[in-house]
């Protein structure tokens, strides 16, 4: 019989990487300089690639003819289980960079645990993805430092981005029901994560906000209004022409 928790957790990992990949992909052709246009697209390719691995695994679990695409294209926003952080708008380069950094620093720690998971497939996907995530973390950390410690204008934009995004960082550490028996210790991740983020923000001459209200819901399908628009665009062809091969 299918393990519902494992299935939902797999979808959660898939949805989170897909939505961030989709967001980053919107920079392709619009980046601040060609080299970085290419860099962020590489990250997007990595993330969407990861989401496919997770969706494919979910499909084998479900074993009812579901495919990576039926999960990505035919579920509604209430069924999506991604973290709220990744669906937040691209905003400017500062906001995109910070979103990437806050996520990659978390994902890096999560996948370090996940690669030793008792579920061999999740472990294998995590192990393979970890190499990519290590680079995402390095790249986004350096950009956070550059922008924080760059010009007054860039620093102000980083401050604004922190205000916008920080309230969405708490959710990652609160396990959803399906997450509880996955062998992941979110509390220990939280501690190391906060230290890493504090170190980088400090080097960027920025500060970690304190006593901020944290939004939750994404993991259980209660999203911000952003997600509906993302999915409308992402799913448009499959929903307009149902049942076709592409």
């Amino acid at each position: 019989m299918m393990n519902n928790n494992l299935f939902n957790y797999t979808l959660h990992l898939a949805d989170t990487t897909l939505i961030l990949g989709q967001r980053n992909a919107a920079w392709c052709g619009h980046g601040p300089v060609l080299e970085q246009d290419i860099a962020i697209t590489n990250i997007s390719l990595d993330l969407i690639g990861q989401s496919r691995s997770f969706y494919q695994y979910a499909a084998t679990q479900k074993a009812d003819g579901s495919t990576e695409d039926s999960f990505a294209y035919l579920r509604s926003e209430r069924e999506f289980k991604n973290c709220l952080l990744v669906e937040q708008p691209n905003g400017d380069w500062a906001q995109t960079i910070l979103r990437q950094f806050l996520f990659s620093s978390f994902q890096h720690l999560l996948f370090q645990q996940l690669q030793n998971n008792k579920d061999a497939t999740l472990a294998a996907i995590a192990e393979k993805s970890l190499k990519e995530v290590t680079y995402h973390l390095r790249w986004s950390s350096e950009w956070v430092i550059r922008l924080g410690d760059g010009t007054e204008e860039s620093r102000n934009k980083m401050l604004k981005a922190i205000t916008e995004l920080w309230p969405f960082t708490g959710e990652q550490f609160i396990p959803a029901t399906y997450e509880e028996n996955m062998g992941i210790n979110l509390l220990s991740i939280k501690e190391v994560w906060l230290k890493k983020v504090t170190d980088i923000l400090t080097e960027a001459t920025l500060q970690v906000p304190e006593n901020i209200f944290m939004h939750t819901g994404g993991k259980n399908g209660i999203h911000t209004e952003q997600l509906g628009f993302i999915l409308t665009e992402l799913q448009y062809i499959q929903k307009t022409y149902p049942g076709c091969e592409w």
């Binding site: 897909l18 989709q22 992909a25 919107a26 392709c28 052709g29 060609l34 080299e35 246009d37 290419i38 697209t41 590489n42 997007s44 390719l45 969407i48 690639g49 989401s51 496919r52 969706y55 990576e68 695409d69 990505a72 294209y73 665009e233 992402l234 448009y236 062809i237 499959q238 076709c244 592409w246």
Partner: peptide
Amino acid sequence: WISRAPSLKRKLILLAKVQDEAGHGL
């Protein structure tokens, strides 16, 4: 059409292709 590509595979192909154009411009 990157955001609207009809499958994840097509999305990756298109994204990689458009990124190649950036490389070629460079």
